[in-house]
Simulated scan of single mutants.
Amino acid sequence: MRAGIDLIDREGGAGPSMRRTAAELGVGVMSLYRYVSGKEELGRLMIDVVFGEHPLPEPGPPGWRAKLELSARNEWQIYREHPWVPQLFALTTRPPIAPQLMSYTDWRIRAVDNLGLEFPTMVRIAIMVSTHTQSSAYPLAVEQFAHDTREEWLGARSGRIQEAFTSGALPMIARFGADAIEASQPHSIFEFGLRCLLDGVEKIISSRDAG
């Protein structure tokens, strides 16, 4: 399994390939099918391995907010190291049944337990933290395997960008500068969204306490 993870980390792609993984292992594709049923199963096992390499601490820092923030940053680090994982999530029709991945959801639910919230609300909070982290990390794979930097990409298209800016049809986009470009980077979206998400959870808890 580690060989397959190293392969996709090195070469990229939106998910593991049975053929490429078999070649990396030095075995025939049919030999690999003796151990996994197909690409989806292979992806599930890989996801389980990478999440298992970043276990959340027990009991974790004091306070629900610190716990959720830590769990999000742990997950973000997984996606920094393995940017193909969010892309693989996007291709699956159902969440993978991976115990190490599911342990993150369980840990987050426990983080907001005993706060007077209904269990469905706790589940939504746990899933929202992961969903936000995954969506923010989705562009990381594109950046990792792109042949140019974001600045070079923008520079090569400066003419078309300037044309769009001066057309008058996009007045807010026309205000874009270095600060706005930085704000649109994946890490900035992750940090801003996480803060807003946790502020929202805090309001839910506060309104419940006030009631």
Results as ranks from 00 to 15, higher is better:
A3F: 12
L7E: 07
I8P: 11
I8C: 08
D9E: 04
R10A: 06
E11I: 10
E11V: 10
G12T: 14
R19Q: 00
T21S: 08
L25C: 05
L25H: 03
G26Q: 09
G28R: 07
S31W: 13
L32H: 06
V36I: 00
L42P: 09
R44S: 13
I47L: 07
V50N: 01
E53H: 12
H54L: 14
P55L: 12
P57K: 14
E58N: 07
P61C: 02
G63D: 12
G63N: 13
K67D: 02
K67M: 03
L68K: 05
E69F: 03
E69H: 03
E69W: 02
A72E: 02
E81F: 05
P83I: 02
W84K: 06
W84C: 03
V85G: 02
V85H: 03
V85T: 05
Q87L: 15
L88K: 02
F89G: 09
T92K: 07
T93V: 05
T93M: 03
R94N: 12
R94Y: 12
P95S: 05
I97G: 05
A98W: 01
P99I: 13
Q100W: 03
L101R: 00
S103C: 07
S103V: 12
Y104E: 01
D106W: 04
D106T: 09
D106E: 05
D106G: 04
W107K: 01
R108F: 01
R108P: 04
R108Y: 04
R110E: 04
D113C: 13
N114H: 15
E118D: 13
F119W: 13
P120T: 00
P120K: 05
R124N: 03
A126W: 01
V129Y: 02
T131A: 05
H132S: 08
T133R: 06
T133A: 10
S136N: 02
A137V: 15
Y138T: 03
L140I: 00
E143Y: 00
D148R: 01
D148N: 01
T149R: 00
E151Y: 05
E151M: 01
W153L: 09
G155Y: 05
G155W: 04
A156W: 00
R157Y: 01
R160I: 07
E163R: 14
E163G: 10
F165M: 07
T166Q: 15
T166Y: 10
A169I: 11
A169S: 13
L170G: 11
L170R: 11
M172N: 07
I173P: 13
R175S: 08
A178E: 02
Q185E: 11
H187K: 13
H187Y: 07
F190H: 00
G193P: 09
L194S: 06
L197N: 03
D199M: 08
D199K: 10
D199H: 12
V201F: 12
V201N: 06
I204L: 14
I205N: 14
S206F: 15
S207W: 15
D209A: 10
A210L: 13
A210F: 15
A210Y: 15
